[in-house]
Design a protein around this nucleic acid. Structure first.
Length: 599
RNA sequence: CGGGGUGUAGCGCAGCCUGGUAGCGCACCUGCCUUGGGCGCAGGGGGUCGGAGGUUCAAAUCCUCUCGCCCCGACCA
């Protein structure tokens, strides 16, 4: 059965080439496992995917998808395509190499840093290898759409992207070249975008559920776009690069974005605080903890003052002494694209005092940003902008007046949930999907407009929806493995069933295995026939490493009593099946396993 | 971008400090043997030691440059 062959008319481009069912025996395909761990693999998924012969490295962050690995990708892509089509998106394929002009139009040619791989053609014209395709898709739509009657438009592609990451690592989890599903929608009004956004949200949930992955959907940072809504889909794994804060009430957010409920107030001052700011000597006490201990106060009594440098200015950022600053929130509050801590020299220039003794009182020529936790302090202590001195008795609002009051507080595990106030917990996750309400960020500068029912020209309101294909496969491994190897969830396994021939020198055993292989294929079972002339130990170890969900062993011992052995990779429990019941047992087991997941 | 490390057979590594004709394990080839968890024995093939330059009678080894790869840091006043 042509489970993987493409339906007539179904379009797709590389790397979506779907393997066509041929003779699926090990010796006729290309499967090569490694006995030893690759030297450069740090994380489980990278190590196992290389060892199992799913991928191999070509250059830093650039991989071959070998036949087994490609089968997994193809299965995942098939699920993605089904759900995207179901959600009303149409597949197309845009070029990987795109002209600089489009990127100039959106302004991203200059905004994007070295992550954008730039190329020149023989005429010295600028191009780049697309890291994402907002510009290109907006160009497509603006050429055709004139009227609100032509909206909405919803397009997706599955394509190879390139981002020249500073530090590619973790195999497919953070490669430079990677396969991604990206979708874009265009709408006449926000309500219509909302409909598409929710449809995508549902589609993503279904995709990860159908893959058998344990994931969470969390609120995410919207970056410099502002105001819009954004959600990330995280596959839960201890090795995940992102921290997620979540609450039993259902609230969940990327730590970059997470808010908190009301934080516990700072303890009362242990003694009478001075009426007006009073300088006290704090020789060589630079950290809040040290100064607090030195002055016999709590860190929460302090204002921590950090000097940042943005692409346009210096800012002094105030946070309560027991808290940390969330730089992503700060970036959003400032509306800047670059942000970094100022150097010690620059701090001196800006505040007049050395690093470690900064405070908001008497600062001029810099904007002061204060977190609400600072403004709610009645009386505080902070740096005096002079060496070895702090001020006590500082009253926010009286002794200094911040230009901006904004939430720049970094939420941590144990903080109260913004919705219900219960303490939040922290988990780690791998970001596998990210959906966005873009608004008019691209449609406006690129003049992707339509005429509304009153004849007014308006920019399209856009959404974009990304899903890392390779990363999802890696996340599946990260989440499903043991010390022997991968334990593929059934929907993503390169083959659902592996049929193992032992004693390949004995004609009757070979004949029995061949006969079973034939009837399994006739029954449409997704089976690989391990017909190698290897010792059993070698075979079993390879199969455990690759992680085929269902294993069927044909050997002379079982055959002597007319049986073959059936087991699941997950638990390894073996059951003997009479020869004439093999197909039924396998198809029954597969049906049982499939029933556990949505389809 | 900074700091560190590394590059020797397909893979994993030793040799380098103290220059003197390149080694181990796995894999591979041949034969015998063996076949339900990475067998055994015997024989064999395979490397311009990342590249360029230099020092030297002699360089994998010392020096300089270069390229690739890996790790750490992007750290809180």
């Amino acid at each position: 059965m042509a489970r993987f062959s493409r339906a007539a008319g179904e379009r797709s481009g590389p790397p979506a080439v779907v393997p066509v069912e041929g003779d699926m025996r090990w010796t006729r395909t290309f499967i090569h496992t490694l006995r030893q761990d690759p030297a450069d693999a740090e994380v489980v998924s990278h190590r196992l995917m290389v060892r199992a012969g799913l991928i191999s490295k070509v250059a830093a962050g650039i991989y071959n998808y070998l036949p087994l690995g490609l089968r997994t990708l193809a299965k995942l892509e098939r699920i993605i395509r089904e759900e995207m089509e179901h959600a009303g998106s149409s597949e197309l394929l845009m070029p990987a190499v795109t002209p600089a002009e489009l990127w100039h139009e959106s302004g991203r040619w200059s905004q994007y840093g070295p992550e954008l791989l730039r190329l020149k053609d023989r005429h010295q014209r600028d191009f780049c290898f697309g890291p994402t395709h907002e510009e290109v898709v907006t160009d497509i739509v603006r050429r055709e759409v004139r009227s609100y009657r032509q909206l909405p438009v919803n397009l997706y592609q599955i394509q190879t992207k390139f981002r020249d990451e500073v530090r590619p690592r973790f195999g497919l989890m953070r490669g430079r070249e990677f396969v991604m599903k990206d979708a874009y929608s265009f709408h006449a009004d926000p309500a219509d975008l909302e409909v598409a956004y929710r449809a995508m949200e549902t589609a993503y949930c279904r995709i990860f559920e159908r893959c058998g992955l344990s994931y969470v959907k969390v609120e995410a940072d919207t970056g410099n776009i502002g105001g819009s809504e954004s959600h990330e889909f995280m596959v839960l794994a201890d090795t995940g690069e992102d921290a997620i804060l979540s609450c039993s009430c259902g609230y969940g957010a990327n730590a970059e974005k997470a808010e908190t409920g009301a934080l516990p107030e700072a303890p009362a001052w242990p003694r009478q605080a001075p009426e007006s700011p009073e300088a006290v000597a704090t020789p060589e006490q630079t950290s809040v903890e040290d100064v607090a201990a030195f002055l016999e106060l709590e860190p929460a009594h302090f204002i921590k003052t950090m000097i940042f440098e943005t692409d346009q200015e210096f800012v002094a950022v105030l946070i309560r002494g027991d808290r940390e600053i969330n730089e992503v929130k700060l970036k959003n509050a400032l509306g800047c694209t670059h942000l970094q801590l100022a150097s010690a020299e620059k701090i001196e220039t800006v505040t007049g005092g050395p690093q470690g003794f900064s405070g908001p009182v008497g600062l001029h020529d810099v904007r002061v940003v204060a977190d609400p936790t600072v403004m709610s302090l009645a009386v505080t202590a902070t740096g005096a902008n002079a060496a070895d001195a702090h001020l006590v008795g500082v009253r926010p609002g009286r002794d200094f007046d911040p230009a901006v009051v904004a939430d720049v507080n970094l939420a941590v595990a144990g903080d109260p949930c913004p919705r219900c106030g219960q303490p939040m917990i922290e988990k780690r996750g791998i970001e596998v999907g990210h959906i966005f309400k873009l608004g008019t960020k691209y449609s406006e500068p690129m003049r992707c407009t339509f005429l509304d029912s009153e004849g007014n020209e308006q920019p399209c309101i856009m959404g974009c929806y990304g899903l890392g294909v390779g990363r999802t496969a890696a996340a599946a491994v990260e989440q499903n493995h043991d010390d022997r190897g991968i334990i593929w969830p059934l929907p993503l396994a390169p083959f659902e069933v592996v049929l193992v021939l032992l004693n390949s020198d004995q004609d009757d055993v070979v004949a029995a295995a061949e006969q079973i292989y034939g009837s399994l294929r006739a029954a449409g079972v997704d089976v690989l026939f391990d017909d190698r002339l290897e010792r059993p130990g070698v075979k079993f170890n390879d199969l455990d490493l690759i992680g085929f969900p269902v294993r069927l062993v044909v050997g002379k011992k079982g055959l002597a009593s007319g049986n073959v052995e059936l087991s699941l990779r997950r638990d390894g429990e073996r059951q003997m099946i009479p020869l004439d019941g093999v197909v039924q047992a396998v198809t029954g087991l597969l049906a049982e396993e499939r029933a556990k997941l949505p389809s």
